[in-house]
Amino acid sequence: MSVIVDRETRLCVSGITGREGRFHTLNNRAYGTNVVSGVTPGKGGQDVEGIPVFNTFRAAREQTQANTAMIFVPPPFAADSILEAADAGIATIIAITEGIPAHDELRVYTHLRRAPAVRLIGPNCPGVLSPGKVNVGIIPAAFFREGNVGVVSRSGTLTYQVGHELAQRGFGNSSIVGIGGDPVPGSSFVDIIDLFEADPETELIVMSGEIGGDAEEVAAVHIAAHISKPVVAYIAGFTAPPGKTMGHAGAIVSGSKGTAAAKAEALEAAGVRVAKTPTQVAEIAVELLGG
């Protein structure tokens, strides 16, 4: 088993004819992902290495039965593309695009929450990898293999670092889910942790958080009340100064709110083991699951 993407995934890529979109789409297909179509307005009828391109998501879904969308278009068009995919009836939308305006994200989030059949992952995320099965996004799949650790993270490269440490200790992953580094992610830690809790293959959940917002604190309360599987957390940004955005739009300590220390404290209070370094995540995993 795995979460969000699996062998049933039929992927349609918005922005498939762009340089980055094309490159990663073909990478995903080479990994085994069933890429059924792409969308680029005005380029309907063309194809990308045999993948048919449509003008609209509606046409792409009707003609190729796409059930998952990957959004790769630049920020000015990304919110609109997410809404179009949802309107066309696509249930899972994975938005890679970084730099979408916050007010756009707020409107998209509010609209999608009223259509609970749609799940948005991201934006500003590396995507979702279910090793051995499907890769949707830009996660370098070669470093990961199938296994029993579910990973959910706000950051891309930090996920690879944590996953790499786990792999060196012999662990594989059920799924690796990047929820993204923006202030209004479509899915939260809580949403993904619930999926891992219900996934029979996942035996350990690793969450990698960072400064800014209160998603980690909210997750801590939820874990204490509802999650039976062991959770290991890592938080980045202990040395970040207040008021400075640390790369990700959402990574900012506002006044005394959103600090790494407060997040680690909340998680520990909820019984979650908090690693001090990415290496320590793997050490704790060995302790909890055996080497």
Partner: peptide, 14 residues
């Protein structure tokens, strides 16, 4: 990557 850089700062400080 922003997350990895933040993590690097922390590990150096540790």
């Amino acid at each position: 990557g922003a997350g990895l850089v933040m993590s690097t700062l922390d590990v150096v400080a540790q």
